[in-house]
Simulated assay, not measured.
Amino acid sequence: MDDAFDKAANLEDEFEDVGYIEGFEAGKIVGHIEGREMGCDNGLGIGRDLGFYRGWVQQWLRAAAARPDFVSDRVLKKLTALQSDIDKVPMANGEGADFGERLKSIQLKFKAVSAMLGINAAAELPSTTLSY
């Protein structure tokens, strides 16, 4: 008789263990799908913003190369530093990538160079710029 009660008492633990394992496996699949979607959404925005900053800096550097008197040496140095920061952003997500901090730094430098050039940075930014 005790054997029947022991089996009934252990039944709850067995179901709990099986449910945990099944839930964990299902969660891995759902988490992978959600992570991919989130990565694609965020990656698209980051790539779009980096592309904007890269193109903006390249155009100003081309203009400065074509007409050396167009921008001061100080502005040219800041543009070159901004270009260097953009080039250092990794194109893959790995340890130490820290995209948020890198992009904030690039945004701040962009705003500073824009002010030095007498340009309204807010008017230059794409309307869908992410806030990092």
Rank of each mutant, 00 (worst) to 15 (best):
L125K: 12
A81W: 02
N120I: 04
Y20S: 07
D98N: 06
A66N: 03
W60L: 14
F5Q: 09
D49M: 12
E101K: 04
D49Y: 14
G51H: 04
V75L: 00
G45D: 15
R62V: 14
M1I: 11
D87V: 00
S131F: 15
L103N: 06
G23E: 00
L76N: 08
E95I: 04
L79T: 10
A26R: 08
S72M: 05
A64T: 09
N10V: 07
A63P: 00
A92N: 13
A92R: 10
F24V: 12
M38G: 13
T129D: 10
Q59H: 07
S72I: 08
K88W: 01
E14A: 01
S72W: 08
F99D: 09
G39T: 14
M91Y: 02
A123C: 09
L79A: 03
G94S: 10
Q59G: 04
L61I: 14
L76W: 06
V18E: 03
M116R: 02
L117P: 05
N10K: 11
F24Y: 09
K104E: 15
L50F: 02
A122T: 12
S105V: 12
V30C: 05
H32W: 14
R74Q: 05
S84R: 08
M116A: 04
D17A: 03
G23C: 02
C40D: 13
Y53Q: 08
R67I: 08
A112K: 09
R102P: 00
L11F: 11
N93Q: 12
G23Q: 02
L125C: 10
A65P: 03
G39N: 10
W56Q: 10
Q83P: 00
